[in-house]
Write a protein that binds this DNA or RNA. Sequence first.
DNA 1: GAGCATTGTGGCAGTGACTGCCAACTAGAC
DNA 2: GTCTAGTTGGCAGTCACTGCCACAATGCTC
Lengths: 205, 205
Amino acid sequence: MTTTLRDRRRRQTEQDICAAALALFEQHGVAGCTSDDIAAAAGVSSRTFYRYAVTKERAALLVQADIEDAFEAGVAALRPTEPLLPQLESLWTEVLRRHENGRSASGRQLRSLYRLLRTEPTLRAAAVAVDDERRAGFTALLAELTGAAPSDPTPRVLVEVTTAVVRAALDRWSEAMDDPATYGEPDLVTLYGEAVTAFRAMTQP
Amino acid sequence: MTTTLRDRRRRQTEQDICAAALALFEQHGVAGCTSDDIAAAAGVSSRTFYRYAVTKERAALLVQADIEDAFEAGVAALRPTEPLLPQLESLWTEVLRRHENGRSASGRQLRSLYRLLRTEPTLRAAAVAVDDERRAGFTALLAELTGAAPSDPTPRVLVEVTTAVVRAALDRWSEAMDDPATYGEPDLVTLYGEAVTAFRAMTQP
DNA sequence: GAGCATTGTGGCAGTGACTGCCAACTAGAC
DNA sequence: GTCTAGTTGGCAGTCACTGCCACAATGCTC
């Protein structure tokens, strides 16, 4: 067993905190509950709540850490000599498909989160902030992988643009949950595919 | 005179607050000064400081409001029937050129801000949050302008992608200021041009 | 399985960011 | 001049977050 007891505990309390935050945010709104409330609901002291969550809002964002970890791992496994844009696009497709499962617990939590993002500006602010941090990591990784010169804009543009398309898809996903009339059954992978198509259409007229 | 005295006062204190925030952030770091400090330096009470700045960090971000206002105005003046991507790209070029002036006061403040963004994570978090808010506005405007269906991903993708390229350029700009050895004389418009070139290269292999 | 090193946890006190409320003021309209 | 609406300042209060320290649990080693 490579995972020690401490590791498992750690992951467990992390999940507890995240679940508690999502539940309370949904029930009372972000402004309607305190960090102490979340900590208590997760069965943990206020102090350790902050050790895990760093910020009240970020507690709810822990669900998507897995996704971004998966993407980062995928970036490390790219083939730097072949065209990167299509590789990154199919990597995103793969990652999104694997995590969007509406039947798994984390899949449902992910939906909760993105529903909340539409109505909770402070939560959204936190989300874009962590997103930005992660992007910096992706960019550094990609730059190292391709051996690009530090002044070469390519890695940055690549990361910024591909994540921009993903963001467009995620925003539509959020919207679709509150408004199923306009969209049909909202399926994240499909929405991402449509965003990629729109992207292609606009770059090749 | 269409601008009333109140308007002028308002703009003045806004600039005072912004200038004070930038100065203190540069001198003592964001964590090294309180919102009261900034308010006092701007000659205003703590209460009205928050009325203008909303957030301690956002005080410094008021400099770039002009730029985003200019871009938004430009979006409203686009020709919806012609290809939008090149229009948006030249709009950004235009807007950046007009505001990057290193000799004007606001131009120097803009540089200060972007230098700070590299070293101050909380400031950067606030910056990406306001950026996100503005993008939502751009997207809504563009959607209305083109008369796209609400389920059409095109406006969103368009805004996300074009701003993504700008962000890549701005990040390199920040970096260039602290490291003039790697880059030559950092010129924002040039950097943006290079980012656009990289973008083209990666979409048309 | 006892003892030691490492890591995780809780409690507490303190700082400071932000808000609601109200009272005083000031520009603008007539 | 006066009335109205927008603007400001001063509290007082809440709550997010942090540093510090004592204590507990885990993992390692013999």
